[in-house]
Structure formats: C-alpha cells, structure tokens
Simulated assay, not measured.
Amino acid sequence: MKYIRANLLTPARNLCAAFSSSSPIPTLLTHFTHDPCPQAHEHGLPHLASFLGRTFTGTDGVARYFEVMTSELGFEDMSFEPEAEWLVDTSTMAVVIRGTAKFYAKRTGQKWDEGFVYRLGIAEEVNEGVSGRGELKVQEYEVWADTGAAYLALNGRLGEVLSEEREGGTGGAGRTRRSQDRKRSGCGEVVGSGMGAYGSCGQ
C-alpha cells in the first residue's frame, strides 16, 4: 500500500503544532519514531553553533539536539505556510515546509526575524509483536535556517550589523555606511560604475 498526501500531512502537522506551541522536549519526541531510528540535522557549519552541521541519531540524540539548540536560542510567533503549499513526495515519504519566527539568542537577548525550511522524512513506527501497519511519525528532521544571524546574535554582534545597515538610509537597504560613502564620492558598487572619461575612483 502506498501512502497518499493526506497520510503524510498528519505527522508533519502534529510536529509543527508541537513546535509552534513551544512544547517540552518529551512531547516533541512523541512525534518521532523510535524504530526506525530517528535523526535530526540542522544544516550549517559546526563552527557557528554547537547544534549545527551534526547528525544527532536515535531518540537520545534527537533529544540532545533540542536540548542544545533550546539552551542557546528561543523563538516567538512561529508560524507555517498554509498546508496547501506544503510539498509532499509520496515516493520518498517526505514533507517540505516553510516557516517564519522571531528568534533570539538567550545569552545576549539579540533578536531577528527568520524564514526557515523543514524537510520531514516520515516512516512507520515498528511495534514488535504487533501485526499490520504502524503509526506514521517523523523519522528524519532536517532544517535550513539563517545560521549567519544565529552566529552573530550568539556572539552579540547582530545589533552592530543591523545598525550599519540602518545607517545606510531608507533608500539604501542592505548597504553599510561605507558603501554609502563610496556612492556619494562617485565610487560605484559595481564594476565600471563611478568611472569618468579620464580615470576612475582613487586616481
């Protein structure tokens, strides 16, 4: 029997509801399989944060991932896109979901708005001695998020970066004060811009 979209949405929905309501770790773990072995992996360089770039395996490993992550980061106002936009692959038993939240570093208090993506691999729970199909739960939890913002916030540097961006002015979103000064002086931000008929900036 092949599972359909509606079957796979249920365990994904249950886990996302537990996340968004800040459920405790033991509650989160009830939405993961025990057999087959579950795993959690948040993509990113391990050098940026202790919960990044490592695969946490088994029920204890998944619990450890959430313990480490929640000891460093918190969030507010988590929400997910409408279920009609969730991507479901019934051949690989996977659901891909986009969400948003305001995250903050607990040590520094610095906050940022973030979009993130979950890929949830779904599997049947194996119950020894019980015939028939097991309950569908999440076996593989993968997340892609703004690791740069997390790193800066954990190290108390996010405010500095955001201040530099704001100093660029309303019309200069994404530019630092230095780039604005270069613009005013005639030095462009792209190759060839700011060059006159008889020379270029700095000459």
Rank of each mutant, 00 (worst) to 15 (best):
V130R: 09
K137L: 15
M78S: 01
S50P: 14
H31L: 06
G156P: 05
H31V: 02
E164C: 08
L73Y: 08
G196I: 02
F75A: 09
V126A: 13
G202H: 09
F56C: 06
P46L: 03
G171L: 09
L73E: 04
V130Y: 13
A105F: 02
G174K: 03
R107E: 10
L136C: 09
S21G: 06
E167K: 15
D35E: 15
M78Y: 05
N14M: 11
A63I: 00
E160A: 06
E76N: 10
L154Y: 07
G132S: 03
S163H: 14
L15Q: 05
D60S: 12
S20K: 14
S21K: 13
Y104V: 00
E167S: 13
A173H: 11
G53S: 10
Q39V: 05
P24A: 10
G132T: 11
N14A: 15
G129P: 03
L15C: 04
A17I: 06
C37R: 14
W86I: 08
H43N: 07
Q39P: 06
S179M: 14
V117T: 15
G121K: 06
A17Y: 05
E165D: 12
E72N: 04
S91L: 07
T33F: 01
G199E: 13
Q203P: 11
A84V: 15
S71I: 00
C37M: 13
R54P: 00
G115Y: 08
C37S: 13
A17L: 10
L162F: 09
N127S: 01
P24F: 10
V62Y: 03
E125L: 00
M1E: 13
E125T: 02
R13E: 13
F75T: 01
T33E: 11
S131T: 11
D35H: 11
M1K: 04
L154E: 04
E125N: 11
A49E: 05
E128I: 06
T90G: 07
W112G: 05
T170F: 11
T90V: 12
G168A: 10
E124K: 08
G44F: 03
G171V: 10
M93S: 15
V161S: 06
G129R: 08
A149S: 14
R54S: 04
V190G: 12
S200T: 11
K183S: 15
I122Y: 02
E167I: 08
R64H: 01
I97N: 00
D113V: 05
A105M: 02
V143R: 05
V126F: 08
L136A: 03
E85Q: 15
S185M: 15
G199S: 10
I4C: 10
Y65F: 12
G202K: 01
L120S: 01
D89Q: 08
Y151G: 01
Y141C: 03
M78H: 03
E135S: 08
G121Y: 04
R175K: 15
G168E: 01
E140G: 09
E76I: 09
L158A: 04
S20Q: 09
G58M: 07
T33R: 07
Y151Q: 06
G74E: 03
T147W: 07
F56H: 02
S163L: 14
V96G: 11
A197Q: 14
G129L: 08
R107A: 15
R178V: 14
V88M: 00
Q110H: 06
G196C: 10
P82N: 07
G159A: 02
R175E: 13
G156K: 09
S20A: 14
E114I: 02
F75Y: 15
Y151P: 01
F116I: 00
D181A: 11
C16L: 12
F32C: 06
